[in-house]
Amino acid sequence: MEKILEINGLHKNYGKTHAVKGISLDVEKGKIVGLLGPNGSGKTTIIKTIMGLLSDYDGNVAIAGTTPGVAANENISYLPDVSHIPNWFKVNQAISFFADFYKDFDAKRAENMLDSMNIPRDKKIKALSRGMQEKVQLSLVMSRRAKLYILDEPIGAVDPASREFIISTILKNFNEEGAILLSTHIIADIEPILDVAVFLKEGQIVLNDDVEKIREEKGMSLDQLFREVFKNVV
């Protein structure tokens, strides 16, 4: 199975804080992997390392065989957990921006997605509601035909109804030639679409397994298991 993402022995310190303590993880083609853990467990640090936003780390990270950097970025479609598109852009401007910079961007797809969500494309992003803004960002990211999709807290700040919609959108636009790595601390909504669950506790991987296998062997849902594993973590 082709490995889209390979991480080996990743360590990351922020000064004295040892944020990521030697994690190794692989994401295979065609899989949806959940990087799950409470806030502060190191999920975003790992993601930033993959995206080349953090330079000093120990260990090996490879995206389709390339180290984090500009070449790797061509193959990654990234949804950060902050709003990174200038919010005075109109939605249409954001679409042309993506079209300008990403060869694998499918503008038509994005437009259809946004139209089906009843999001007015000629409005400025800042004029839209928070939930709509998230949907805009997601639509742009999922309209790329990339090898790796990294979604950092795609459903974190959204109401339950929108969550379902976002999860459907992710599934609908899932590119089987690639893989998805998504991070979240809201397990119940997301678990039906995950192939693999990776539990991250205080910078270390405490579980990395096939989700159905977990259900079979432990006789409980991922959400339930998560609560058990992390019950003492604030």
Binding site: E164, S168, L171, F174, P192, I193
Partner: peptide
């Protein structure tokens, strides 16, 4: 497989 997975909101591999 894709359409069914989407209908049921489950992972396509499942």
């Amino acid at each position: 497989v894709r359409d069914l997975a989407l209908q049921h909101n489950v992972n396509p591999n499942t």
